[in-house]
Design a binder for these strands. Structure first.
Length: 351
DNA sequence: AATGCATGCAACCGCGCTCGC
DNA sequence: GGCGAGCGCGGTTGCATGCAT
Protein backbone atom coordinates (compact mmCIF):
# COMPACT_ATOMS: atom_id res chain seq x y z
CA UNK A 1 0.00 0.00 0.00
CA UNK A 2 1.03 3.55 -0.48
CA UNK A 3 0.24 6.21 2.00
CA UNK A 4 -1.84 6.04 5.09
CA UNK A 5 -5.52 6.64 4.50
CA UNK A 6 -6.83 10.11 4.01
CA UNK A 7 -8.76 11.87 6.69
CA UNK A 8 -12.00 10.18 7.48
CA UNK A 9 -15.03 11.50 5.77
CA UNK A 10 -17.02 10.65 8.85
CA UNK A 11 -17.16 13.43 11.38
CA UNK A 12 -15.62 15.93 9.07
CA UNK A 13 -17.01 19.35 9.64
CA UNK A 14 -18.22 21.41 6.75
CA UNK A 15 -19.33 24.94 6.25
CA UNK A 16 -17.87 28.24 7.30
CA UNK A 17 -14.79 28.27 9.42
CA UNK A 18 -14.97 29.59 12.94
CA UNK A 19 -12.37 31.99 14.32
CA UNK A 20 -11.24 29.30 16.67
CA UNK A 21 -10.56 26.96 13.82
CA UNK A 22 -8.70 29.68 11.98
CA UNK A 23 -6.50 30.27 14.97
CA UNK A 24 -5.71 26.63 15.33
CA UNK A 25 -4.86 26.32 11.69
CA UNK A 26 -2.73 29.44 11.56
CA UNK A 27 -0.91 28.48 14.71
CA UNK A 28 -0.16 25.09 13.31
CA UNK A 29 1.10 26.47 10.03
CA UNK A 30 3.18 29.00 11.83
CA UNK A 31 4.87 26.18 13.59
CA UNK A 32 5.14 23.66 10.81
CA UNK A 33 4.78 25.68 7.67
CA UNK A 34 2.24 25.08 4.95
CA UNK A 35 2.19 21.69 3.35
CA UNK A 36 1.58 18.17 4.47
CA UNK A 37 -2.06 19.01 4.64
CA UNK A 38 -3.05 15.49 5.37
CA UNK A 39 -1.42 15.72 8.75
CA UNK A 40 -3.05 18.99 9.64
CA UNK A 41 -6.44 17.74 10.80
CA UNK A 42 -5.00 14.96 12.88
CA UNK A 43 -2.26 17.09 14.37
CA UNK A 44 -4.48 20.03 15.15
CA UNK A 45 -7.62 18.21 16.11
CA UNK A 46 -9.55 20.16 13.55
CA UNK A 47 -12.58 18.30 12.35
CA UNK A 48 -11.83 19.36 8.83
CA UNK A 49 -10.52 17.47 5.90
CA UNK A 50 -7.05 18.29 4.68
CA UNK A 51 -8.45 19.78 1.56
CA UNK A 52 -10.56 22.18 3.49
CA UNK A 53 -7.57 23.22 5.59
CA UNK A 54 -5.47 23.87 2.54
CA UNK A 55 -8.22 25.85 0.91
CA UNK A 56 -8.81 27.90 3.99
CA UNK A 57 -5.15 28.71 4.25
CA UNK A 58 -4.47 29.49 0.61
CA UNK A 59 -7.62 31.43 0.00
CA UNK A 60 -8.06 33.21 3.23
CA UNK A 61 -5.56 32.93 6.00
CA UNK A 62 -2.18 33.09 4.41
CA UNK A 63 -0.38 36.39 4.78
CA UNK A 64 0.08 38.57 1.78
CA UNK A 65 -3.39 38.20 0.44
CA UNK A 66 -4.89 41.40 -0.70
CA UNK A 67 -8.57 41.51 -0.16
CA UNK A 68 -11.16 43.96 -1.20
CA UNK A 69 -11.93 45.63 -4.45
CA UNK A 70 -9.89 44.93 -7.49
CA UNK A 71 -8.14 47.92 -8.95
CA UNK A 72 -8.60 48.90 -12.54
CA UNK A 73 -5.20 47.56 -13.34
CA UNK A 74 -5.83 44.29 -11.68
CA UNK A 75 -9.07 44.12 -13.52
CA UNK A 76 -7.38 44.76 -16.82
CA UNK A 77 -4.73 42.23 -16.06
CA UNK A 78 -7.32 39.64 -15.26
CA UNK A 79 -9.28 40.36 -18.38
CA UNK A 80 -6.31 40.11 -20.61
CA UNK A 81 -4.69 37.24 -18.88
CA UNK A 82 -7.97 35.43 -19.11
CA UNK A 83 -7.97 36.18 -22.78
CA UNK A 84 -4.51 34.74 -23.03
CA UNK A 85 -4.75 31.83 -20.69
CA UNK A 86 -8.40 31.01 -20.52
CA UNK A 87 -9.92 29.95 -17.26
CA UNK A 88 -6.61 28.97 -15.76
CA UNK A 89 -7.19 30.86 -12.62
CA UNK A 90 -4.15 29.56 -10.84
CA UNK A 91 -1.99 30.71 -13.71
CA UNK A 92 -3.65 34.07 -13.74
CA UNK A 93 -3.24 34.30 -10.01
CA UNK A 94 0.47 33.76 -10.41
CA UNK A 95 0.60 37.17 -12.07
CA UNK A 96 -1.35 38.64 -9.22
CA UNK A 97 0.40 37.06 -6.28
CA UNK A 98 -1.64 38.95 -3.77
CA UNK A 99 -4.83 37.53 -5.13
CA UNK A 100 -5.99 33.99 -4.87
CA UNK A 101 -7.22 32.00 -7.78
CA UNK A 102 -10.54 31.63 -6.05
CA UNK A 103 -10.74 35.34 -5.60
CA UNK A 104 -9.96 36.00 -9.22
CA UNK A 105 -12.35 33.34 -10.33
CA UNK A 106 -15.12 34.79 -8.24
CA UNK A 107 -14.37 38.25 -9.46
CA UNK A 108 -14.41 37.11 -13.01
CA UNK A 109 -17.67 35.26 -12.65
CA UNK A 110 -19.42 37.96 -10.72
CA UNK A 111 -18.07 41.14 -12.22
CA UNK A 112 -16.00 40.84 -15.31
CA UNK A 113 -18.12 38.39 -17.22
CA UNK A 114 -21.04 40.72 -16.99
CA UNK A 115 -18.92 43.72 -17.71
CA UNK A 116 -17.48 42.21 -20.84
CA UNK A 117 -20.86 41.02 -21.90
CA UNK A 118 -22.12 44.54 -21.74
CA UNK A 119 -19.11 45.92 -23.52
CA UNK A 120 -18.73 43.38 -26.26
CA UNK A 121 -22.07 41.74 -26.58
CA UNK A 122 -22.68 38.10 -26.10
CA UNK A 123 -20.10 36.79 -28.48
CA UNK A 124 -16.37 37.14 -28.47
CA UNK A 125 -15.24 37.24 -24.91
CA UNK A 126 -18.18 35.35 -23.69
CA UNK A 127 -17.47 32.31 -25.72
CA UNK A 128 -13.96 32.39 -24.47
CA UNK A 129 -15.21 32.49 -20.95
CA UNK A 130 -16.69 29.12 -21.24
CA UNK A 131 -14.35 27.35 -23.50
CA UNK A 132 -11.04 28.94 -22.95
CA UNK A 133 -8.77 30.45 -25.51
CA UNK A 134 -8.56 27.85 -28.14
CA UNK A 135 -11.93 26.29 -28.37
CA UNK A 136 -13.39 28.99 -30.47
CA UNK A 137 -14.76 26.82 -33.20
CA UNK A 138 -18.22 28.01 -32.55
CA UNK A 139 -17.25 31.63 -32.54
CA UNK A 140 -18.92 33.65 -35.17
CA UNK A 141 -15.92 35.89 -35.66
CA UNK A 142 -13.22 34.72 -37.97
CA UNK A 143 -9.86 33.63 -36.70
CA UNK A 144 -8.30 36.73 -38.19
CA UNK A 145 -10.69 38.94 -36.37
CA UNK A 146 -10.15 37.00 -33.23
CA UNK A 147 -6.42 37.25 -33.47
CA UNK A 148 -6.62 40.93 -34.10
CA UNK A 149 -8.76 41.32 -31.04
CA UNK A 150 -6.37 39.23 -29.06
CA UNK A 151 -3.52 41.39 -30.25
CA UNK A 152 -5.38 44.42 -29.10
CA UNK A 153 -6.11 42.77 -25.82
CA UNK A 154 -2.48 41.91 -25.33
CA UNK A 155 -1.45 45.39 -26.21
CA UNK A 156 -3.89 46.86 -23.78
CA UNK A 157 -2.81 44.47 -21.11
CA UNK A 158 0.77 45.47 -21.56
CA UNK A 159 -0.17 49.08 -21.54
CA UNK A 160 -2.02 48.53 -18.33
CA UNK A 161 0.94 46.72 -16.88
CA UNK A 162 3.27 49.48 -17.99
CA UNK A 163 1.10 52.00 -16.28
CA UNK A 164 0.80 49.89 -13.23
CA UNK A 165 4.51 49.37 -12.99
CA UNK A 166 5.39 52.93 -13.69
CA UNK A 167 6.63 54.56 -10.50
CA UNK A 168 5.58 57.99 -11.64
CA UNK A 169 1.96 57.09 -11.44
CA UNK A 170 0.90 58.15 -8.02
CA UNK A 171 -2.51 56.64 -8.43
CA UNK A 172 -1.04 53.22 -8.43
CA UNK A 173 0.00 51.77 -5.20
CA UNK A 174 3.31 50.06 -5.66
CA UNK A 175 2.31 47.13 -3.59
CA UNK A 176 -0.61 46.45 -5.77
CA UNK A 177 1.60 44.99 -8.35
CA UNK A 178 4.94 44.62 -6.81
CA UNK A 179 5.09 41.58 -4.67
CA UNK A 180 8.39 42.65 -3.23
CA UNK A 181 6.96 45.70 -1.68
CA UNK A 182 5.08 45.75 1.53
CA UNK A 183 1.98 43.80 1.08
CA UNK A 184 -0.04 46.11 3.19
CA UNK A 185 -3.32 44.63 2.30
CA UNK A 186 -4.71 46.10 5.42
CA UNK A 187 -3.86 49.50 4.14
CA UNK A 188 -5.10 48.54 0.81
CA UNK A 189 -8.35 47.44 2.26
CA UNK A 190 -8.62 50.74 4.00
CA UNK A 191 -8.01 52.77 0.93
CA UNK A 192 -10.10 50.55 -1.19
CA UNK A 193 -12.94 50.69 1.18
CA UNK A 194 -13.31 54.30 0.33
CA UNK A 195 -14.60 53.27 -2.98
CA UNK A 196 -18.11 52.19 -3.49
CA UNK A 197 -18.65 48.68 -2.35
CA UNK A 198 -17.62 47.16 0.89
CA UNK A 199 -14.76 44.79 1.21
CA UNK A 200 -15.91 41.84 3.14
CA UNK A 201 -12.75 40.01 2.24
CA UNK A 202 -10.67 42.64 3.88
CA UNK A 203 -12.99 42.81 6.74
CA UNK A 204 -12.72 39.15 7.31
CA UNK A 205 -9.00 39.04 7.15
CA UNK A 206 -8.57 42.04 9.30
CA UNK A 207 -10.86 40.69 11.86
CA UNK A 208 -9.19 37.38 11.88
CA UNK A 209 -5.97 39.22 12.45
CA UNK A 210 -7.61 41.00 15.30
CA UNK A 211 -8.91 37.84 16.69
CA UNK A 212 -5.55 36.25 16.37
CA UNK A 213 -4.06 39.09 18.24
CA UNK A 214 -6.48 38.50 21.00
CA UNK A 215 -5.69 34.86 20.82
CA UNK A 216 -2.04 35.50 21.26
CA UNK A 217 -2.52 37.92 24.06
CA UNK A 218 -4.95 35.79 25.91
CA UNK A 219 -4.58 32.18 26.55
CA UNK A 220 -5.90 29.90 23.88
CA UNK A 221 -8.29 28.55 26.42
CA UNK A 222 -9.99 31.81 26.98
CA UNK A 223 -10.05 32.68 23.36
CA UNK A 224 -11.63 29.43 22.40
CA UNK A 225 -13.96 29.22 25.30
CA UNK A 226 -17.07 29.98 23.40
CA UNK A 227 -18.40 32.10 20.65
CA UNK A 228 -20.36 34.17 23.09
CA UNK A 229 -17.15 35.60 24.36
CA UNK A 230 -15.99 36.64 20.97
CA UNK A 231 -19.37 37.98 20.16
CA UNK A 232 -19.29 39.98 23.34
CA UNK A 233 -15.98 41.52 22.58
CA UNK A 234 -17.10 42.08 19.07
CA UNK A 235 -20.04 44.05 20.28
CA UNK A 236 -18.04 45.93 22.82
CA UNK A 237 -15.51 47.01 20.33
CA UNK A 238 -18.04 48.10 17.88
CA UNK A 239 -19.52 50.30 20.46
CA UNK A 240 -16.19 51.79 21.25
CA UNK A 241 -15.73 52.35 17.59
CA UNK A 242 -18.62 54.67 17.78
CA UNK A 243 -20.62 52.77 15.25
CA UNK A 244 -17.94 52.94 12.65
CA UNK A 245 -17.17 56.59 12.97
CA UNK A 246 -13.47 56.26 12.65
CA UNK A 247 -13.27 52.61 12.00
CA UNK A 248 -10.45 52.13 9.63
CA UNK A 249 -12.71 50.98 6.92
CA UNK A 250 -16.31 50.94 6.16
CA UNK A 251 -16.23 47.22 6.13
CA UNK A 252 -15.80 47.08 9.84
CA UNK A 253 -19.41 47.83 10.34
CA UNK A 254 -21.12 45.10 12.22
CA UNK A 255 -23.34 44.36 9.33
CA UNK A 256 -20.70 42.85 7.16
CA UNK A 257 -21.11 39.31 6.19
CA UNK A 258 -17.83 38.06 7.43
CA UNK A 259 -18.25 39.65 10.78
CA UNK A 260 -21.53 38.02 11.20
CA UNK A 261 -20.28 34.79 9.89
CA UNK A 262 -17.29 34.53 12.09
CA UNK A 263 -18.38 36.48 15.10
CA UNK A 264 -14.98 37.97 15.10
CA UNK A 265 -14.20 40.60 17.60
CA UNK A 266 -12.84 43.96 16.75
CA UNK A 267 -9.80 44.20 18.87
CA UNK A 268 -7.28 46.64 17.64
CA UNK A 269 -5.46 45.96 14.48
CA UNK A 270 -3.29 43.95 13.19
CA UNK A 271 -0.21 42.60 14.85
CA UNK A 272 -1.84 39.27 15.09
CA UNK A 273 0.20 37.76 12.38
CA UNK A 274 3.09 39.71 13.67
CA UNK A 275 3.23 37.56 16.69
CA UNK A 276 2.18 34.52 14.85
CA UNK A 277 4.60 34.84 12.04
CA UNK A 278 7.31 36.68 13.79
CA UNK A 279 6.99 39.69 11.60
CA UNK A 280 7.68 43.22 12.46
CA UNK A 281 4.35 44.08 11.12
CA UNK A 282 1.85 42.24 9.12
CA UNK A 283 2.37 44.84 6.50
CA UNK A 284 5.82 43.59 6.14
CA UNK A 285 7.02 42.32 2.89
CA UNK A 286 7.04 38.84 1.61
CA UNK A 287 10.74 38.85 1.90
CA UNK A 288 10.41 39.31 5.57
CA UNK A 289 8.08 36.46 5.57
CA UNK A 290 10.62 34.46 3.74
CA UNK A 291 13.18 35.39 6.28
CA UNK A 292 11.00 34.22 9.03
CA UNK A 293 10.59 30.94 7.29
CA UNK A 294 13.12 28.40 6.43
CA UNK A 295 14.07 28.29 2.78
CA UNK A 296 12.08 25.17 2.34
CA UNK A 297 9.12 26.68 4.01
CA UNK A 298 9.18 29.79 1.99
CA UNK A 299 9.71 27.74 -1.09
CA UNK A 300 6.76 25.62 -0.38
CA UNK A 301 4.90 28.65 0.64
CA UNK A 302 5.35 30.24 -2.71
CA UNK A 303 5.06 27.00 -4.48
CA UNK A 304 1.72 26.83 -2.94
CA UNK A 305 0.80 29.84 -4.91
CA UNK A 306 1.80 28.56 -8.25
CA UNK A 307 4.71 30.82 -8.82
CA UNK A 308 6.57 29.75 -11.86
CA UNK A 309 9.82 28.98 -10.20
CA UNK A 310 10.14 28.68 -6.50
CA UNK A 311 13.89 28.41 -6.67
CA UNK A 312 14.06 32.00 -7.61
CA UNK A 313 13.34 34.69 -5.20
CA UNK A 314 9.64 34.61 -5.74
CA UNK A 315 8.99 38.26 -6.10
CA UNK A 316 11.87 38.64 -8.45
CA UNK A 317 10.53 35.89 -10.54
CA UNK A 318 7.19 37.56 -10.68
CA UNK A 319 8.55 40.90 -11.64
CA UNK A 320 10.94 39.56 -14.13
CA UNK A 321 8.13 37.86 -15.90
CA UNK A 322 6.14 41.00 -16.12
CA UNK A 323 9.10 43.11 -16.98
CA UNK A 324 10.21 40.67 -19.57
CA UNK A 325 6.82 40.70 -21.05
CA UNK A 326 6.73 44.45 -21.08
CA UNK A 327 10.24 45.08 -22.20
CA UNK A 328 10.01 42.66 -25.02
CA UNK A 329 7.05 44.52 -26.20
CA UNK A 330 9.10 47.60 -26.69
CA UNK A 331 11.30 45.76 -29.06
CA UNK A 332 8.93 43.35 -30.62
CA UNK A 333 6.00 45.35 -31.75
CA UNK A 334 2.38 44.54 -31.61
CA UNK A 335 2.27 42.42 -34.70
CA UNK A 336 4.41 39.83 -33.01
CA UNK A 337 1.65 37.90 -31.44
CA UNK A 338 3.34 34.60 -31.74
CA UNK A 339 6.31 35.60 -29.69
CA UNK A 340 3.98 36.71 -26.98
CA UNK A 341 2.32 33.39 -26.89
CA UNK A 342 5.66 31.68 -26.90
CA UNK A 343 6.81 33.82 -24.06
CA UNK A 344 3.77 32.88 -22.19
CA UNK A 345 4.42 29.23 -22.77
CA UNK A 346 8.06 29.50 -21.86
CA UNK A 347 7.65 31.55 -18.79
CA UNK A 348 4.74 29.79 -17.37
CA UNK A 349 4.92 26.20 -18.35
CA UNK A 350 1.85 25.78 -16.32
CA UNK A 351 -0.09 23.36 -18.31
C1' DA B 1 -41.81 47.32 7.69
C1' DA B 2 -42.00 43.08 5.31
C1' DT B 3 -41.08 40.26 1.56
C1' DG B 4 -38.83 38.55 -2.53
C1' DC B 5 -35.11 38.77 -5.66
C1' DA B 6 -30.30 39.56 -7.03
C1' DT B 7 -25.64 39.55 -5.92
C1' DG B 8 -21.22 38.16 -4.15
C1' DC B 9 -18.29 35.36 -1.54
C1' DA B 10 -16.67 31.28 0.97
C1' DA B 11 -16.54 26.67 0.69
C1' DC B 12 -17.44 22.18 -1.38
C1' DC B 13 -17.11 18.76 -5.07
C1' DG B 14 -15.10 16.19 -8.60
C1' DC B 15 -11.53 15.34 -11.68
C1' DG B 16 -6.84 14.77 -13.15
C1' DC B 17 -2.06 14.67 -12.14
C1' DT B 18 1.76 13.43 -9.16
C1' DC B 19 4.04 10.81 -5.92
C1' DG B 20 5.08 7.09 -2.64
C1' DC B 21 4.84 2.37 -1.61
C1' DG C 1 4.40 -1.07 -13.41
C1' DG C 2 0.24 -0.85 -10.69
C1' DC C 3 -2.33 0.90 -7.07
C1' DG C 4 -3.90 4.19 -4.01
C1' DA C 5 -3.51 8.52 -1.49
C1' DG C 6 -2.35 13.45 -1.64
C1' DC C 7 -2.56 17.63 -3.88
C1' DG C 8 -4.00 21.28 -7.03
C1' DC C 9 -7.27 23.24 -9.95
C1' DG C 10 -11.65 24.63 -12.04
C1' DG C 11 -16.58 24.44 -11.67
C1' DT C 12 -20.43 24.78 -8.88
C1' DT C 13 -23.31 25.52 -4.91
C1' DG C 14 -25.15 27.42 -0.49
C1' DC C 15 -25.89 31.11 2.14
C1' DA C 16 -25.60 35.80 3.93
C1' DT C 17 -26.29 40.33 2.59
C1' DG C 18 -28.07 44.21 -0.07
C1' DC C 19 -31.52 46.15 -2.77
C1' DA C 20 -35.98 46.81 -4.90
C1' DT C 21 -40.81 46.55 -4.55
Amino acid sequence: MGRPPCCDKVGVKKGPWTPEEDIILVSYIQEHGPGNWRAVPSNTGLLRCSKSCRLRWTNYLRPGIKRGNFTDHEEKMIIHLQALLGNRWAAIASYLPQRTDNDIKNYWNTHLKKKLKLQTGTEGHESRDDDGLCSSASQSISRGQWERRLQTDIHLAKQALCEALSPEKPSILPDQLNPTSNIGFMNFAKSESQSSSTTTYASSTENIAKLLKGWVRNSPKSASSNSAVTQQSFNNNNFTDGGGTESTSSDETPSTKADNKNNINCMELPEAFESLFGLESFDSSNSELSQSMSPDESCSFFQDHHLPDCKQEPSTAQMSLLEKWLFEDQQVKDYNLISDLKLDENTHNIF
